[in-house]
Write a protein that binds this DNA or RNA. Structure first.
Lengths: 189, 189
DNA sequence: TCATATGCTGAACAAACGTACAATAACTAT
DNA sequence: ATAGTTATTGTACGTTTGTTCAGCATATGA
């Protein structure tokens, strides 16, 4: 049983069950007939930093789902993927480490295209009703939702698109800030 | 103990421990002195679809980390957040449901800006060495990494930027396709 | 060829775990 | 006021869990 195969099986189990298997379940999963074989394997995985044990001795994933981050590349001209090789990122933590309540929206249209928010992108919004100038906000203007830059001047609020062909919005009746856009997620295919 | 507070405490525990607490740990966590109080609470959470039990009776998160998806909004002009309210997304599944090996890169520069890939964005790349025309690829050109559109014509490969001020790259010596960009992730602040 | 490390089997055990049942306190609705 | 539901306590029990020890077969290296 190689580490690679073990990682693959553990990922599969974790994705289905949303938890790590017990030693007994590892036996079933890996075809062992002795629990101690599982203990042996787990120790190797702990050494490899795939798994770890918490203070109570319970098993938990360490880098099981980390994605190797190959570094920074210039999209302008080719450049060496700057160092930091061997690093890895837990995207769940990376993305959702946002304080407070969050919700998401799918964006349609191209009014924020110069900000790199395209049709079909999902934005993650942190509920925060006191945005600062320049923040990208999800706002409820006159009863309808929109995503725009937030700008406050002389006690008046302007919602500014990132696309010249759209007008700046000045809320007439009511304005409710849903929150500040914390992340943008795009998926291809 | 309200459901909201329970969810918040469970999320905190799960983030730290990467697993759900046992009934005993729920007692400590919620200040109960009887395990049965924990059972009671858990049953409510199962009814609310926050948690669920698998076929073996083990507790696992169902919608504990789902982010409410408020629907589709027009970024052009304000429009009603089209239905689908009450829906929710598991972003871990959403993002990383990519077959095969993946790795990530941080992009510098603005050569893909018209594709909405900005300086500082992270791209998730699926290792796939046979991209189709139009795919965004991470490629190793003459020993250095770059992110560009992939275009193959008459047996020649072109790497095309999404920015007019940059030239089309024709690999001279060698070209190695690292993979196809599957997602783009941006984080503000 | 012999010693050692590696990978696994099998069994034993205390602690922790989930489940169940009976009882009580607090809140709601009528 | 009273009946019923909701929220919690306390206890008991069989099962599963992680751990440990002894042993054996197969590779590995000197």
């Amino acid at each position: 049983m190689t580490i690679e195969k073990a990682v693959s099986l553990l990922r599969k189990f974790y994705k289905q069950q949303k938890r790590l298997p017990s030693y007994q379940e590892i036996c079933t999963l890996f075809g062992y007939s002795s629990k101690n074989a599982a203990v042996y394997l787990v120790n190797k995985l702990i050494e490899a930093e795939i798994l770890e044990k918490d203070d109570k001795g319970k098993l938990l994933p360490k880098k099981l789902f980390h994605i190797p981050h190959l570094g920074i590349i210039k999209a302008g001209y080719p450049s060496p993927a700057e160092s930091s090789l061997g690093d890895s990122i837990d995207f769940y933590e990376y993305l959702l480490d946002i304080p407070g309540d969050i919700f998401s929206l799918t964006v349609h249209g191209d009014s924020m295209i110069e900000e790199g928010i395209h049709d079909g992108d999902i934005v993650i919004v942190a509920k925060d009703h006191h945005p600062r100038n320049g923040d990208i906000v999800a706002a409820l203007v006159d009863g309808e939702w929109t995503v725009k830059y937030f700008q406050q001047k002389n006690n008046r609020v302007y919602l500014i698109p990132a696309n010249n062909s759209y007008p700046i919005i000045e809320p007439r009746e009511s304005l409710s800030i849903g929150g500040v856009v914390a992340s943008v997620i795009r998926k291809y295919h």
